[in-house]
Nucleic acid binder design. Structure first.
Length: 614
RNA sequence: GGGGUGGUAGUUCAGCCGGUUAGAACGCUGGCCUGUCACGCCAGAGGUCGCGGGUUCGAUCCCCGUCCACCCCGCCA
């Protein structure tokens, strides 16, 4: 339980509600007369003696109502409803020998209640306040104030608070200023869909809620703030997942006159301290680093879970030794043949391998090739391979008898995508995932990625990310029609990955207006467009912009991992559903036409589904 | 936008291969109980089977549509 609350000073008018928290009484207090407040957690009415567990944020205390102490109070207690809020006054006594409860911190003592006042009588609850209750999520969200009474939810919010507190302490100590940036801001072109806010005072004009404070923090660097941070909400109007909310919180920071290593070192220090102070874990720094390229080659994605092996192995050489058309065709078409180890999967039945094949097909692969390793090699495709190739492949994968080798041959993107997902699944299934937290930096991201639909390049990180020094000359003077050259540009960007989850990312920014213009050009933003959308940034870069860079950490995801939560909703006090609705307040909801008129808005809803009228 | 899982008492679930009175546990209400801690015992109340339509003599069950929650793909620089 968190912190020592100054309950002794909690005075409202002349009435002193309570002396301490329920969880704070102990043997040291035996003999004292005190006041407690809280919620009726459990009610054990023996007719004569009545035991009530009184709960507040600090814990639980057992109250005893004895008719011999005060008959009227005892009678009152007889009618107490669960989750009612009460205040009691009574004497702390040691529990009789043999009736102590070692399961709770206050279990050695109990409060003999002399007087009781019911501050708020509770109706029967829609669900009970228990940690292990499996109530439907919609009910929990609708009655969030009840859900949050569960100790587990409280504990999650306490952890969240402590992450914020540690962050503020650490960054303050490192010379950072906490500065707020606007929530009503300008719509950005690249990236996620914006949440829009119409402007009454500027008819037809819209604010957007920030997807991140990116531009403002860069402007703060130009303003000479040197080191900025903020724990702030970001908004993205995209579809939700178990670890994604439409509004989420970032620990956002930016520093002047730094290189990537400075930012990385600072963040390693922050995370190290967080995990030490909150989880009691000593996270080793510096964290390992992988380049994007290496991460893709070895794990198939840019946020590998480093808690287990099962690395992807390139099998092009062995495939070339074979006469297996599927592999050869993939290679000839410029694709890849790679494999992963299926630990202890040689016993798979035909049915099971078929199921696995269906799975990878659902992920986008054309098929799955497999070779079981027993005394020899067993598969319908071994006949296409010389013995030497089979042995080499087994060696690369460190396959032992009893294992199975799993191959995907396709375009590189498909091979990596499918195998990385397969790797995760196999890791989980085989119980190979260790329980030690594994941090990782992924560096040297491509500057741009090709967008098939729009047939143009777009920024992989964001358009303000600096290219690496070696690419600066090309960015400033090169010929952008050379797609291969443009594709190979790399960014001074870095992501921080924890247990296979991207918990943050950042970069060194462009602080030269000419470079910024050329990058806009690369991603197909015209001079005119750049002016309209980012004129203020381009201007700022002309009036003394220091080299700067920073990073943003996903607070919700960090707290999720620290608390072992499966859902981001369990670490947010008032989260939204998968449809981005708030079941507590019923937002979003319709507004009346007067409000719309004031904002110069007219609705054009799809055909009415309410009244089936002709 | 697509795929999947679920929706039956206040809650968590069972059930009904279409049939007359839809069950359990917990909770709730009343009673009994002076050492419990998920107290115990006895009795009782409690249902639009998510919603709309269809098939049928008859639908909680079958069919179609729809809404809600969750998981995933697309999407999320």
């Amino acid at each position: 339980m968190h912190g020592n609350i100054g309950f002794g000073n909690a005075v409202s008018g002349k009435l002193k509600y309570r002396d301490v928290g329920c969880g704070q009484i102990g043997e040291k207090d035996v003999g004292k007369e005190i006041s407690l407040c809280g919620w009726v957690f459990r009610n054990r009415d023996h007719g004569g003696l009545i035991f009530i567990d009184l709960r507040d944020r600090t814990g639980v205390a057992q109250l005893v109502f004895n008719p011999d102490v005060d008959a009227a109070t005892h009678d009152q207690a007889h009618h107490l409803k669960v989750e009612s809020v009460i205040a009691v006054r009574g004497e702390i006594r040691k529990r009789p020998v043999g009736t102590e409860n070692p399961a709770i911190p206050t279990g050695m003592v109990e409060v003999y209640v002399k007087s009781l006042s019911i501050l708020n009588r509770a109706d029967p609850l829609p669900f009970s306040i228990e940690d292990n209750s499996e109530v439907s999520e919609s009910l929990r969200l609708r009655y969030r104030y009840l859900d949050l009474r569960r100790p587990e939810m409280l504990s999650n919010l306490v952890t969240r608070h402590r992450v914020c507190k540690t962050t503020r302490d650490y960054l303050d100590g490192a010379g950072f200023l906490e500065i707020e940036t606007p929530i009503l801001t300008k719509s950005t072109p690249e990236g996620a869909r914006d949440y829009l806010v119409p402007s009454r005072t500027n008819p037809g004009g819209f604010f957007a809620l920030p997807q991140s404070p990116q531009l403002f923090k860069q402007i703060l660097m130009v303003a000479g703030m040197d080191r900025y941070f903020q724990i702030t909400k970001c908004f993205r109007d995209e579809d939700l997942r178990a670890d994604r909310q439409p509004e989420f919180t970032q620990i956002d920071l930016e520093m002047s006159f730094v290189g990537a290593d400075d930012v990385i070192k600072l963040v390693e220090g922050l995370l190290n301290r967080m995990f030490k102070e909150i989880s009691g874990l000593d996270v080793e720094t510096p964290f390992p680093r992988l380049t994007y390229r290496e991460s893709m080659e070895r794990f198939g994605n840019d946020k590998p879970d480093m808690r287990f092996g099962l690395e992807l192995k390139d099998m092009a050489e062995e495939a070339r030794m074979s006469t297996f058309k599927v592999f050869l065709d993939a290679l000839d078409a410029g694709g890849r043949v790679k494999a992963i180890l299926g630990k202890n999967m040689a016993a798979y039945s035909r049915r099971e391998t078929d199921l696995l094949t269906q799975e990878v097909q659902a992920m986008g692969a054309k098929g799955l090739a497999w070779i079981k390793v027993k005394d020899g090699f067993e598969s319908t495709i071994t006949k296409f391979f010389p013995e030497e190739a089979l042995r080499k492949m087994a060696e690369k994968l460190d396959a032992q008898p009893g294992d199975m080798m799993l191959f995907i041959a396709d375009r590189e993107a498909v091979v990596h995508d499918v195998l990385s997902r397969l790797r995760l699944e196999l890791g989980k299934k085989s119980g190979l995932i260790g329980n030690e937290d594994k941090f990782l930096w992924v560096t040297d991201f491509p500057l741009l990625e090709w967008n098939e639909e729009e047939e143009r390049f777009q920024a992989m990180h964001h358009p303000f990310t600096s290219p690496v020094d070696e690419n600066l000359e090309y960015v400033l003077n090169g010929d952008f029609s050379d797609r291969a050259a443009v594709s190979s540009l790399r960014a001074r960007a870095y992501d921080i990955v924890l247990n296979g989850s991207e918990i943050g990312g950042g970069s060194l920014r462009i602080h030269n207006p000419q470079v910024q213009r050329r990058v806009f050009q690369l991603i197909g933003i015209s001079e005119k467009e750049a002016r309209e959308r980012f004129g203020f940034l381009l201007d700022a870069l002309r009036y003394g912009a220091p080299p700067h860079g920073g990073l943003a950490l996903g607070l919700d995801r960090i707290v999720m991992i620290m608390t072992g939560s499966d859902s981001i909703r369990d670490v947010i006090a008032f989260p939204k559903t998968q449809k981005a609705a708030c079941l507590l307040t019923n937002a979003p909801s319709a507004v009346d036409t007067k409000q719309l008129r004031e904002l110069y808005l007219k609705l054009t809803l799809p055909e009415e589904q309410g009244e089936p009228e002709e």
